[in-house]
Nucleic acid binder design. Structure first.
Lengths: 142, 142
DNA sequence: GATGTTTATGCAACATTGTTGCAATTTTAT
DNA sequence: ATAAAATTGCAACAATGTTGCATAAACATC
């Protein structure tokens, strides 16, 4: 791993008041390496099974709590996580961007440059958060 | 069950070329009774455990294949199904409406009257389907 | 650096959810 | 009423997620 990247990861953990551990560094490294969303099984594969399953679950939950990653909705039982690029904190997490799932390669990524549109709901509904997942074919698979 | 409703369900199954069985009728009845989305566990509870788990899985998959129900994306491991009110067939299923998840009562429902907005993606991406899930507080919980 | 305290990890055991093969039953068509 | 086709229930298995607790690692302080 590049020293530069390692420094970035350490800063990220410090700013969330988390201690620096091998598991957390490795998982963040995997997030930065992949430009898409990851699910639990990916971490077991990509990390070479060097970490316990339970540790991975707990690490992801911690990152969620701290606003370091966010979940992406899916229509199956998998839970997908993506790293938050910006504007997310421990107490105010919002995805202001669209998620895209490619039907060809199966990857899911955040389209940071594509804003969530305003949805006008029927009378009586209060919206707190809006999730948009677009599926189709990505740039690379065309 | 009302004879009228039963007749409706039988028609629905017939038009999808499915045979009329107790499980299928019961599950459709539960869909019509609830005005929100249901997940697998709900069927086990609501049906009074009268059906085998496997049968429920297979029935839901059959309904999906036939376009009778659709899935709603979630950020956890649950898989939520809602009955299609309109314009869905076996080979062209589209949700043209927004889904709403209430943070208070936990129910998920289809907002048939709220259209999915047009999302303009970055160059190179082809969109086939757009899912929108809004979370917040519903009419009943305010 | 060494030391004690706090925090994170790994293991075991368990709970939940989903899948597959096959025999028995039910539905449908004749 | 009967035969063929489809569905169901059971058993066994696979995958995924959770909890308690002892061990190990990280951190703050000296």
């Amino acid at each position: 791993m590049l020293a530069k990247q390692k420094e970035l990861i350490v800063q990220l953990l410090r700013s969330s008041k988390l201690s620096i551990t091998d598991t957390r560094v490795k998982i963040l490294e995997l997030f930065l390496k992949s430009n898409g969303a990851l699910e639990h099984a990916d971490f077991e594969k990509l990390s070479g099974k060097s970490f316990d399953r339970v540790t991975i679950y707990r690490t992801l939950q911690t990152f969620l709590d701290k606003g370091i990653v966010h979940k992406i909705p899916t229509t199956d039982t998998s839970v997908r996580y993506a790293i938050c690029k910006s504007d997310c904190g421990e107490h105010d997490h919002h995805d202001h961007h669209v998620h895209f799932r490619c039907e060809e390669c199966g990857s899911t990524r955040c389209l940071e440059e594509t804003d969530i549109p305003v949805i006008s709901l029927p009378k009586g509904y209060d919206a707190h958060n809006v999730e948009v997942v677009v599926s189709g074919v990505c740039k690379e698979c065309k």
